[in-house]
Design a protein around this nucleic acid. Structure first.
Lengths: 242, 242
DNA sequence: CTCTGTGAATATATTCACAGCC
DNA sequence: GGCTGTGAATATATTCACAGAG
C-alpha cells in the first residue's frame, strides 16, 4: 500500500503524529476558521469537538500530539490553534497543484474554489486531447501532455491531481513520478503502482457509493424488509431519462 | 460522528463485517472485474492482493469475513468471488441516486461514467438556481429544490449526493433527511448534523490535499531541506494565470 | 471550580505463522 | 506441495476517568 505512510527514518526527532489524527486536522482547522469568522476568541474542547463532529476526548488527544496549546480551565485560543494546526499541516507554505486530465472532473476541480481558500493554487492543467490543448479553462491554458515534464518543472508543481481516464492512469502516473512528483491525489478508480517514497491518496466516488449501499442494505435486511441478495426492486426503466 | 457506523441492533444474526474491510471490498471487486475481463478464471490471494494494492494476509482475512469462498491449494474462482462480494455490498440491487446541487461538481458527477458501471443510476438532479431548473444536464431535467421531497419520492431515490455550496449544506441536508434519505454522500467541506440512523460519507478534496501537504512537508523537514513553518518559497505570482 | 492533558483500559485493525484441506 | 482460513501476537485507535494546572 502507498496511501497510509508512517515513513519514519532512523534519525527522526519529531514525535510522529498518528495517521488518524492527521486526517482529522483539516476538519478541526475548518471548524476553527468558521469560529474565528464568527468572532469566537476562545473555545473549549467540548465546543470544538461538537463543531468538528467528534468526541471531545478524541479531540483533546489529537491536539495533544501537536503540543500543549490549550489552557486548563479555559480552553483553546482560536487564532493560536489555527496557526499551530496550519503550521503542522504545512499550510504556511503555498502549495502548487497541477491537474492532469481536463475532462468533466478535471474542469470541475479546476473551477472549484475550495482549494484556493486554503493555500492550494492550481498552476497547471495538462491534457492529451488535441481539442483541449491550448484552450483556456478556469483562467489557465491547458498544456499538452507531451510537455508534461517541462510544465511540471516550469510551474514548480508540488502536488499532482490525477483525473484522467482509468485506461491511462498508470501510464500517466509513471510519467508524473518520473518527473519527480511525490504527492498524488488519485481520482481514478485504479490502484497505482508507485515507489515507496511517493504518497498517493485516492478519492473513489464509486467506492463511497458502494460503502453506503452496503450499510443501507444491512439496515434493510436487519429490519426484515428484504433478504440479502434480493433486489427488492423490479427493474423498471428510468423515468426522467432523455 | 456519523461516518463510521457499526449499527448493530440487539437481535442481529449476521456476523458483522469490520468497517475497514467493508471499505476495501469495492477495491477487491474492481480488481476482480478487471481480472475477469482479462479472462482470468482463478486467482490466488497473493495475485489478487497485488492487484488490489494490499498485503495477501489482509486480503484473506477480509474475505474470510464474508465466508469461505476460496479453495485451499488453488485460490479463488474469480466469477464466484465477484458474485459474493457484489451480493454482500448490495449491488444485486439497483441503487437510485439523486445529485443535489448542479454546479461544476454536480455536473461533473452527473456526467461521470463510473457510477453507472456499477449499478448506480443517477435518476434526479436538483438545484435551486432558476437558470438551472428545467435545463437538461447529462440527459436529465434539473428539478427545482422547491420540489425536493416530491422528486425524491417520485424517483424512488436511495442515495443523495450533496454538491451544494457550503453555506446551504446543512439546510439542504435537513430537507433530505426530512424526506427520508438515510444515505448521503457529502462533497461539501461541512460537518453535517444528522440523526443516528442516517449515514454520511464525506469526500473532502481540500482535506486530501492538506494531508498530502502534511506528509510532503514532513519529508522535506526530515531531509533537512526546510524547517517547519518556513515557506521555502518566495511568494512569486502565478505565471500562466489569466 | 473548570477544563486540559494524559496514563490506563478497551476496541479495532494488521500482521504473523501455521494447521488443515485440496 | 501449494494455498486458504484463522487463531495468536502485535500495532493502532478510541474511550474512559482523573490528576493537576489555572
Amino acid at each position: 500500500m502507498s496511501t497510509h505512510r508512517p515513513h519514519r527514518l532512523p534519525g527522526d526527532a519529531r514525535p510522529a503524529i498518528p495517521e488518524a489524527t492527521v486526517a482529522r486536522l483539516p476538519v478541526y482547522l475548518r471548524a476553527l476558521t468558521l469560529q474565528a469568522e464568527a468572532g469566537v476568541a476562545t473555545i473549549s474542547s467540548e465546543e470544538l469537538a461538537a463543531a468538528a463532529g467528534v468526541g471531545s476526548a478524541k479531540l483533546r488527544k489529537d491536539l495533544s500530539h501537536l503540543g500543549s496549546y490549550g489552557t486548563r480551565g479555559v480552553g483553546y485560543e482560536v487564532d493560536y490553534l489555527i496557526y499551530q494546526i496550519s503550521r503542522e499541516l504545512g499550510l504556511s507554505q503555498d502549495w502548487r497543484v497541477a491537474i492532469v486530465g481536463v475532462g468533466n472532473l478535471g474542469r470541475a476541480l479546476a473551477a472549484y474554489g475550495g482549494f484556493a481558500s486554503r493555500g492550494f493554487r492550481v498552476v497547471a492543467l495538462i491534457d492529451s486531447h488535441p481539442d483541449l490543448v491550448g484552450a483556456r479553462v478556469a483562467g489557465l491554458r491547458v498544456a499538452s501532455a507531451d510537455d508534461l515534464e517541462q510544465v511540471l518543472a516550469g510551474a514548480d508543481v508540488h502536488i499532482a491531481v490525477l483525473a484522467v481516464p482509468a485506461e491511462s492512469a498508470q501510464q500517466v502516473c509513471d510519467r508524473l513520478v518520473g518527473a519527480g512528483m511525490s504527492s498524488l491525489l488519485n481520482f481514478t478508480p485504479c490502484v497505482l503502482d508507485v515507489p515507496d517514497d511517493v504518497m498517493v491518496r485516492k478519492v473513489d466516488l464509486s467506492s463511497e457509493l458502494q460503502i453506503l449501499a452496503f450499510h443501507q442494505q444491512r439496515r434493510a435486511v436487519q429490519e426484515g424488509v428484504i433478504s440479502p441478495g434480493d433486489t427488492g426492486d423490479e427493474p423498471e426503466p428510468l423515468a426522467e431519462a432523455l
